[in-house]
Design a protein around this nucleic acid. Structure first.
Lengths: 145, 145
DNA sequence: CTAAAAGTTGAACCATTGTTCAAGTCAAGG
DNA sequence: CCTTGACTTGAACAATGGTTCAACTTTTAG
């Protein structure tokens, strides 16, 4: 009993009992998003949990990690649908995720980020080019026919 | 993009008469967006026109250019509100825009693009760091004290 | 056992960037 | 003058990413 209190953040009942079972607000706190966002993510298949006999959601600690990755992916500019597809590449059972799984996922997100950086670089080029498209017509002179 | 340089596109009545007066669809065609988008941009203050006695919108050719800049700004990731603020830095009368005005505007947009690129670079760094946040706990072995 | 705290649902709402539609008005040519 | 195409408005709809609310149920602590 004494050794189980290594987690400084308050231990809620559901955490104390199993240590691998998180309620919606447990997960919200652990991942840094609102409880409503946790429900939203589950609804859209970004995370998966199970239900108690009373129909309440329960999650595993790894889901906190997944949510953090989701937030990073959102900063990259991926939509929830995009992110779901990336997560679909993970093993079905998210409880068995290995360091290697995370590494691959991170790599795929890096590629996405690079693509978006490239898109911005392309805009910068077009911006230079656009000086031709938006030429200021000399106004006080006769336009040669 | 090939034919637009010499404006081969049909000359509508309103264009023929004054050459500086464009209807909504004239401007839509000239700028490459839908007529509904032109109205949307005017409603949100990105472009400014005047009305005929019959309450129809009329624009100047320079507005086609402004819309093209708006589209570039959107690709950078700026919202309509952001873009309006950037455009507010232009002289009040958009008819008097100089090459210098456009240059300054392009420069401001370049800065925005660079900021967004930097934000993505930051994400890439966080992604590397996140391997620590999302550590996979060794599951089947005693954790060494 | 009971009351409070936290969970459940669906629906409504926010902002963003437009598109589409209906009903009615204007402009231009013959 | 009259027809036809283009224009006007406001409202509804779409997708995205959530938040908030109401009404009701479950869980937990005492």
């Amino acid at each position: 009993m004494t050794a189980s209190t290594t987690q400084v953040t308050q231990v809620t009942p559901s955490q104390a009992k199993g240590k691998e079972s998180l309620t919606v607000s447990d997960l919200a706190r652990a991942s840094g998003v609102a409880a409503s966002a946790v429900r939203f993510y589950e609804k859209h298949g970004l995370i998966t949990g199970w239900r108690t006999s009373g129909n309440q959601r329960r999650f595993r600690p790894v889901d906190a990690c997944l949510i953090k990755i989701v937030r990073v992916a959102q900063r990259i500019g991926l939509s929830v649908t995009d992110i779901r597809k990336h997560l679909a590449a993970l093993p079905d059972d998210h409880q068995d995720l290995t360091a290697e799984d995370f590494k691959r996922l991170r790599h795929r997100l890096e590629i996405e980020a690079h693509e978006r950086i490239q898109a911005l670089v392309d805009v910068l080029e077009d911006l230079d080019t656009s000086q031709n498209l938006c030429k200021v017509q000399p106004r006080s002179r006769t336009i040669p026919d």
